[in-house]
Structure formats: C-alpha cells, structure tokens
Amino acid sequence: MMDILQILFSESFWAASLRIATPLIFGVLGALLCEKSGVLNLGIEGIFVAGAMAGWMAVWLGLGLWGGVIVAACAGAFFGLVHAILTVPLGLSQHVSGLGITMFATSVSYFTYRTALPNVSSPPRIEPFQALDIPLLSDLPFFGTVLFQQTALTWLALLMVIVVWYVLYRTPLGMAIQAVGDNPDSVDAQGLSVYGLRIGAVMAGSALMALGGAFLTMSAFDAFFFGMVNGRGWICIALVIFASWRPGKALLGALLFGAFDALQVRLQTEVGALVPGQVFLMAPYILSIIALMIAARRADYPRALLTPWFKGQR
C-alpha cells in the first residue's frame, strides 16, 4: 500500500503519465472532431502508423523535426480525405471504410519503410524532440519535472485541446460542425455545405491523429518499429465516448489512461514477483472498460453520427 502511495507522489510517475497520454490526446481530439461532424473514423489506428512513419521518414531524409510534424499531419489529412470521400458524398459504411483505411494506411506505411530501407536489421535512429527546458520554471520542485521536462509535442497536444475547444464552442465554424453532426438538414437549410464541413472536419481530425503517431517516432522513441502503435488508436475511439465528445473531458480521459499505464509499469517492478506481469498489462484496458461503462451510459451522442446525408433526398 505504501508502495502505491509512494508511486502516486513521485514526480517521475506524473511525468510518465503525461508522456504516455500525449499521443492519446492527439488521437482522441482527432476522433472527437470527426465524430462531432457525424463521421466515425475507424481509420485512426492506421493513421497513427502513417503519421509515425511519415514523420520519422521526413526527419530521416533531413527535413527537420518540425518539417516531420507537418509531413505527418499532411499524411493524416490525406487518409482522412480518402475516408471522407468514401463516407460523406458516397455515403458508404463508415465502419467498413474506416477499417479499410486502417489496413491500407498500415500496409502502405510498412511497404514504404521496407522499400526505402530494404536491408537494415536495426531501425535507423533520428535525433528526436528534446525536453523543452525552460530556465527557472524547469527547476521548480515537482511541477518543474512533471510539466517543464516534456517535449514540444506534448505542449502542442495541450495547446490543441484549447484550440479544438475554442473552435468548436466559440467560432461560427464550430457551430456549423456541431450542427452538421446533429442534423445535416439544419446546415443545408441555412445555405452551408454539408459535404464541405464534414470532409474538412474529417481531414483536420485525421491530421491530429497522425500527430499522435508522429509523437511516438519523434519524441517518445527515435525510430520506427512495426507494431509500435499497438492499439492506441482504438483506445482513442473508446476515450471519445468516455469524454462524451467534449475536449476538456477528452484530455482528462487521456491523462487517466496514461496514469493507469504508468502505474502498471511501476507496480510490475514492485510486486512483479507475486503477480504475473500480464495482469498489469491488462489493467489499463480493464480499467478503461470500467470507466467507459460508467461514463458511456450518460454519453451524449452526436445525433447524426454514422448517418450519411445526400443532397436532394429529404
């Protein structure tokens, strides 16, 4: 018991939680943006892979770290565009298209990686983002370590929470995105383009998802591995429901999951001799299922989620 308390009060635990949460923050914000406009994007898992691969490769080719971030976002937006064209004007099943995008984006990423590097056994490394060391602030006890030793991408993720919140709730564009996810007819009857809004939201959301992937190769690690995304995209889909489609709660959900995961690693070293390690690996997922069961019952779905809309059919 004392051990757990010790972990909970340690700086490294909270720093790790925030680090683990960063890709999830990007992913859950992206999924939230897509779903607010009425489109479920199950391509998220593949878009994570594509973002991780594209960002890493751009840096490896010498575009610089921020160049890599932009390339990753563009790769995400591209797969978002494919998904949006299939599901918005063509009105195909969002589930089928999304899973297809996941498989497609994953395979294309692996294929590109293997084609570019046919004969390497150990993945080439890049110089990743370093902790943003802000003088004085970083030296603060506790908060200094937790907050001011994160990389720039973590800060970008936190900034994005505010940006997404502001756009959705404070701008005319956000009103239109919320309206198109609730009742596309309301947008059409006011002379706005349902297709334009939905395609734009899915592309922007997918770009955010890709940044989550890029964080993995450009900040958390320094190379691209197969299977490194490891279900993070699917976790984001669940977290959106947990967050009830609200950016603030999305941040909370991602942090909660990050904390579970960080706790799990530490508990493993503490009591690993008594309990098999697999139990701890399961723990964050089981806890998120329990959290979902509590939160999702009250969830406030965008009413038009999964419902295609066609011009001239009323």
């Binding site: 919320q178 609730d182 009742n183 309301s186 059409d188 009857a189 965008p302 009413r303 009323r314």
Partner: peptide, 11 residues
C-alpha cells in the same frame, strides 16, 4: 420553414 424541423438540437 420545413415540415420536419431543420434544427440542430445540441445548439
């Protein structure tokens, strides 16, 4: 004014 309301209920 449409027969079936064209209102976004979340706004």
């Amino acid at each position: 004014v449409h027969q079936h309301f064209t209102l976004a209920e979340n706004l």
